[in-house]
Simulated assay, not measured.
Amino acid sequence: MKTTTFILVTLLTIKAATAQQKEAVGESPWGPDDEIGTLNMMTEASQLQVLSQIASGKVYDLSVDYFVGMPSFHSLGDPGYQYWLTHTPHGTVVDNPNGLGEAMNQKVSYTGDAISMYTHMGTHIDALNHFGLNGKIWNGFTPEEHLGDKGWKKTGAETIPPIIARGVLLDVAAAKGPLPKNYRISAADLQLVLRKQNVRLQNGDVVLIRTGQAQHYENAADYLDNYPGISLDAVKWLVEEMDIMLLGADNLSFEAFPPERTDNWVPVHTYLLAEKGAMFIEQMFLEKLSADKVYEFAFIAASLKLRGASASPMRPVAFPIQTKQ
């Protein structure tokens, strides 16, 4: 019995070690200096093509509001969203900060404000330096060589270009009904959605996954409560077989928790960012696209050029396009 137990433990240890060894940062096919990974799939020709297919001037805003008390990663010790007024109409009359006197400050009202926030809040895109494996990030860049006191010198949010591409909504919540807590969306689920929506994916697409979680965004406790997310096999299918360029979802952190592997607490993050150089957008608002059954669109977005940062707020929009169906 002891021998059998020893052999079983040994085999499990070897299996776990092998699984860990298979996870390694990817070497970019776009060269040793590449910092944007799969966004290299975007070209002037591909951008022009999707823009030429826009069918109407109706625009869908795919971002959420920022406000005090909004959902955040506070459980990991990250700061919440803070907002404060630096100038108010009455305060400037009292303080006279511009030195122009009471009469001028009563005539010209002045409001100013400031914010403080974690970069991974609200609708944002994760940069390729956000998660790495075995001491390296995408394309083999190391913190010893490329991380300074003021951020990463490689793959920072400032390197992310404006994104114009064909977008596809995969409305999982509509196809399967309300998803259970902690539900992991599989490749089979996504294939089911594509059949129901009568949509085909194309190389270089931006694929947005609707879990329905954005319905709870105004209530942080509900939004953060054991939310569903995408599985590792689903993202592997999207990236390796469908050649997707960019991903997004309406939940807090894209994948579901607790993690589906015991040797990696964020296997979807490290697979996409570190192994494949594929970025993704979190905390999107996809409810209006879903309500109008808009599944194919021109996706247009740009993020703030936060030098060295691991993420940046993003304001994506969608314009319905003509389809071949």
Rank of each mutant, 00 (worst) to 15 (best):
L128D: 10
I115F: 08
Y118C: 05
N105D: 15
N129Q: 12
L128M: 11
N129F: 09
Y110R: 04
G112W: 03
V108A: 08
Q106E: 11
A127N: 09
M104N: 08
Y118G: 00
N129V: 04
T111R: 10
G99A: 14
N105F: 12
N105R: 14
Q106D: 04
G122V: 11
I125M: 02
Y118W: 11
N105H: 15
G112I: 03
G122C: 06
A103L: 15
G99Q: 13
S109I: 10
M121E: 06
G122H: 09
S116A: 12
A114Q: 11
S109Q: 09
N129C: 14
L100S: 13
I125D: 02
E102L: 12
H120M: 07
M117G: 00
D113Y: 15
T123K: 01
G112Y: 05
D113R: 10
D113W: 15
K107E: 06
M121C: 07
G99L: 10
G101E: 09
G101K: 04
E102T: 13
L128P: 15
Y118V: 01
I115M: 01
M121K: 00
T123P: 00
M117W: 02
G99S: 12
Y118T: 09
S116I: 05
D126R: 01
L100V: 14
N105V: 08
A127T: 08
K107H: 14
Q106V: 06
V108F: 14
T123F: 01
Y118N: 09
K107T: 15
T119W: 04
D113F: 15
S109F: 04
L100R: 14
Y118Q: 03
M104D: 07
Y110I: 05
V108R: 04
V108W: 15
T123Q: 03
Q106P: 03
T119K: 02
Y110G: 00
Q106F: 01
N105I: 08
D113N: 15
S116C: 04
S116T: 07
H120D: 08
V108Y: 14
L128A: 09
S116Y: 09
A103F: 09
I115A: 00
L100Y: 12
A103Q: 14
H120N: 13
D113C: 07
Y110N: 09
I125F: 03
K107D: 05
T111N: 05
G122N: 10
G99V: 13
D113G: 12
S116L: 04
H120E: 15
K107Q: 11
E102I: 06
Q106N: 06
M104L: 11
M104S: 08
M104G: 02
K107N: 09
G112M: 10
G101P: 05
K107R: 15
M117I: 02
T111A: 04
D113M: 10
E102V: 07
V108C: 07
T111M: 02
D113K: 07
G122K: 09
T123D: 00
Y118I: 01
E102C: 05
A103W: 12
I125E: 00
